[in-house]
Design a protein around this nucleic acid. Structure first.
Lengths: 225, 225
DNA sequence: AGATTCTATAAAGATTTTATAAAAAATAAG
DNA sequence: CTTATTTTTTATAAAATCTTTATAGAATCT
């Protein structure tokens, strides 16, 4: 297997150096960018296996970079943030960040998180079939089966369920789901979500009044298990 | 591993002596300053792993020193205060102090607090999964488990617990917690906090009447451990 | 020791959030 | 062009959560 390639987007030279040394000695190929613009360009030209993104870049906010990346880049993005900047972190996770670390960080921990993120992205992206008890979701064939019988879903219903399946047992916020399934500008249309979660439950839950798969997290979002 | 270095900023010679002896015999390297000015200078020239700061210094108030330090110094700062100066303590914690002790203090307790503070600064600050005995808090998945079973928390309960988890074994003042969880303008609603700490204890403590994780610091705030 | 402040807890009331049905609008299929 | 299907919107009932109040107990101060 080839070396995994990691793109670092960070303007601080000492962080760049530190990461480069540590990652290369752990057998990763390292590519570096110092600005948001440069980073996006490099990622587009030659998509890496993972991106490490500093949230405090000079030319563009990390959030913006992340959301631009997420239009077409599905692999892990790990966020670096300065200490005590919790709002940034939460909103970054909402925009689709894979994980985050606050500076200063221990390199051992960063390496562990990189390994975990890459492992996850390889299994979940390649795993075209997600199963949860009597449910089977084939993400390549776009087919959902319940007790081995095909469940007929509309396009939106399927997109929603696929998103849940890709994020099993993780709480997804309303905002995030709406953005992923409906696109930008729909973040406030929480009612859409309720309607579609309702119709999904009717189709995939044994007892839709007492859902076992699509769990409500009141005030936050939903969780699939 | 090298010895951890501790800077003591205190003008009382007997305290200086007492601390020096106790810390050095516990295998810390001790550096001492007698004034605020000297202390800041020493910390800047050679940042220690932890600072012990007396709140009652001759040339400058400890609060000012703390807030100056916090611009660039992210490691633990433990405050020393005379007994009848509770307001100082609360405001110091609000400014970012890690922990506090009132004089006269027992050295065993000080040593324990130092160990806790250093351990925390090395590990938990960055972690996206925090574990405390039978508790497991996944800050990315937004899921809390107790003995491997998912604990159902409301949004506010979760936000509160997440804040505690990110500041393990650190005293958080009422004001600070209220500001972080409820936002500005709620700093005086201490009763909210009592209600929610109560319901959290019911869900995460073995015996809510004798809490082991969510500890009350009377007159100051709460501590999670 | 007594007074005062602080904390815990329950429970009622208010508000927010969620679920569901069904109508209207938009889109796709025949 | 008409019909069927899907998505969006509206309305409303139910559930969950948050806020407020009241009160008893614990901790702290004088």
């Amino acid at each position: 297997m080839n070396k995994a390639e990691i793109l670092i987007i960070d303007d601080e030279p000492q962080i760049q150096k530190l990461l480069q040394i540590n990652l290369e000695s752990n057998d990763y190929k390292v590519v570096q960018a110092r600005t948001a613009k440069e980073g996006i360009l490099m990622a587009a030209n030659h998509p890496p296996d993972l991106i490490i993104l500093d949230i405090g870049l000079p030319d563009k906010s990390g959030h913006q970079v992340l959301s631009e990346l997420r239009h077409w880049y599905a692999k892990p993005v790990i966020i670096l943030s300065v200490l005590d900047n919790e709002k940034d972190i939460v909103s970054a996770l909402d925009t689709g960040a894979t994980d985050y670390l606050t500076k200063p960080f221990r390199t051992g921990e960063l390496l562990a998180r990189i390994r975990a993120a890459i492992r996850r992205s390889q299994t979940t992206v390649n795993a075209s079939v997600v199963t949860a008890n009597e449910l089977e979701i084939d993400l390549v064939a776009r087919i959902v089966k319940r007790n081995n019988e095909i469940v007929k879903l509309t396009a939106t219903e399927y997109n929603l369920l696929a998103l849940f399946a890709k994020n099993e047992s993780k709480v997804l916020t309303h905002q995030y789901i709406l953005k992923e399934v409906w696109g930008y500008g729909y973040q406030t249309e929480t009612q859409y979500l309720r309607v579609f979660v309702g119709s999904l439950r009717k189709k995939i839950e044994e007892n839709p009044n007492n859902p076992q798969h699509l769990i409500t997290e009141s005030g936050v979002g939903y969780r699939f298990q």
